[in-house]
Design a binder for these strands. Structure first.
Length: 433
RNA sequence: UGGGGUGUAGCUCAAUGGCAGAGCGCUCGACUGUUAAUCGAGUGGUUGAAGGUUCGAGUCCUUCCGCCCCAGCCA
């Protein structure tokens, strides 16, 4: 075709001229002598109008063959039209079929079960709601980079294949030449600490793997995590950065993805309150609070999902829970000088019941205490030689945290389950598509 | 791994132990401004699998399988 082509989003610049738009048919309607084709090109949706008496006979006949998801090139005059979604429509003069689509396209404009939709995830992504989630995800990922770039952090990539090191939760194992088993990384943090000693302030952004048999709306076996690590930051500096970070992420989505949030029917009143200071609760006070609400959790226990919900219920903003008992947390967290039963750490609980989105801590920088903790936990000391070296050769105060990308998106989008938040979720019972 | 559910048409779901159904989709027809168009007609089944009870099982029992939700683990 000889007409200039345009994306749907750019049509406003072509009103009154004839252009060609390429995309996929989402919907076909006919009223005898007037027909409507609604199409999608990834940038927007467009209604195209065919009037039988005004198009070539073969174009009218071709209209009759259009099915959902047929790929097409449609040419016509762009005009402003209040009745059309998006405010513009195309008065069709030519209609070319690029690729046909059989009648059994599985996704209908109606309610489907989640299992069916996930089986058809490769096609489900074409629906507007899923596309909106992907766009918000992209905005958040870009916002992460912008936030740290503006603060002169260096982005570092840490290995995905590792020897046994890191946290103790379930590991995916694979054979690694003559070196025995390799494990898919469940955190880049320990490597991040080494890089912080070299570069000062760093962050990682990469996939994380947990082989835990978790079947809840908050868990994936493969997810993406952002892990900053800062030299010369103590626990207070760490929490201040976390608050600024989360405020920035929420603000970016509110500012630039309002249309997508609206499409998701997200009530944003709670998100708008994230601008204020977050609530800070000491672990011991948190336990008193939940006990007063009927929880039987005792001092020393980790907080369960129900406990988190009880804590968050009183507040309209994210809540830091700080300084957990040593036995409830990982070996690398620094002992709290003010109460040596506890460590200098914080979990950030999202409002509205979305649970923990950040886990952070100041790291143990004393060689002997760290070695003692490694032994207490029964971890193989020889595997941690390089990690101990970071304390042997010029130890330094440092802190960091991990933010779960999918949980954060799920909260901001107001979704029930984080499986919708990643293009191809990996769950305990789902490895494909 | 524990507790609670669930499995029927391509999809979403009905059916007191008594003829397996509806809506959507799809097909055909009507309609010159539709918005998940509307209206009429048509199409659709190894009721997850195996065994058992019964005159008779989608329904009750046993075993197995799949999935969902909650919990634990965590982000």
């Amino acid at each position: 075709m000889s007409h200039p082509s345009s994306r749907i989003a750019d049509l406003h610049a072509h009103v009154g001229t004839t252009v060609t738009v390429r995309g996929w048919v989402t919907h076909v309607r006919s009223s005898g002598k007037v027909a409507f084709v609604v199409m999608r090109d990834g940038s927007g949706i467009l209604q195209c109008v065919l009037v039988k008496s005004q198009v070539p006979a073969e174009a009218w006949e071709r209209f009759g063959t259009l099915t959902t998801e047929t790929s097409v090139a449609i040419s016509g005059e762009v005009r402003a039209e209040a009745r059309a979604p998006g405010g513009h429509e195309l008065g069709v003069t030519e209609l070319e079929v690029i690729g046909t689509s059989p009648l059994d396209y599985p996704i209908q404009p109606k309610e489907h079960g989640v299992d069916f939709l996930l089986d058809n995830r490769h096609l489900w992504l074409r629906s507007p709601r899923q596309a909106a989630i992907m766009r918000i995800r992209h905005e958040l990922e870009q916002a992460v980079h912008d936030f740290f770039y503006a603060r002169d952090f260096t982005r570092c990539d840490t290995p995905i294949l590792t020897g046994a090191i890191g946290e103790r939760a379930g590991l995916f194992a694979t054979e690694y030449f003559d070196e025995g088993m390799a494990y898919l990384a469940q955190t880049g943090q320990l490597y991040g600490e080494a890089l912080a000693a070299a570069l000062g302030r760093i962050y990682t952004f990469g996939p994380t793997f947990r082989a835990e048999k978790s079947k809840t709306r908050r868990h994936l076996t493969e997810f993406w995590m952002i892990e900053p690590e800062m030299a010369w930051y103590d626990s207070q500096d760490n929490m201040k950065l976390q608050q600024e970070f989360v405020q920035y992420l929420v603000g970016r989505v509110l500012e630039r993805k309002a249309e997508e949030l609206k499409l998701l029917e997200r009530d944003t009143t709670m998100l708008e309150k994230v601008t204020g200071d977050f609530i800070r609760l000491d672990y011991s006070d948190a336990v008193k609070l939940i006990n007063s609400k009927g929880s039987t959790t005792e001092w020393g226990d980790d907080l369960g999902a129900e406990d988190e919900a009880l804590i968050v219920a009183d507040y309209d903003r994210p809540v830091f829970v700080m300084n957990y008992p040593k036995q409830a947390k990982a070996f690398y967290m620094k002992e709290n000088p003010a109460d040596t039963r506890t460590v200098l750490c914080d979990d950030l609980l999202a409002p509205e019941g979305y649970g923990e989105i950040i886990g952070g801590s100041q790291r143990e920088d004393d060689y002997d205490r760290l070695l003692g903790r490694i032994k207490e936990e029964g971890l193989p000391v020889d595997q941690y030689g390089w990690y101990l070296d970071l304390r042997k050769y010029g130890t330094f105060t440092h802190s960091g945290f991990g933010l779960g990308l999918e949980r954060t998106i799920g909260w901001i989008c107001g979704l029930h389950h984080i499986r919708e938040v990643i293009a191809f979720p990996r769950l305990m019972h789902r490895l494909r598509p």
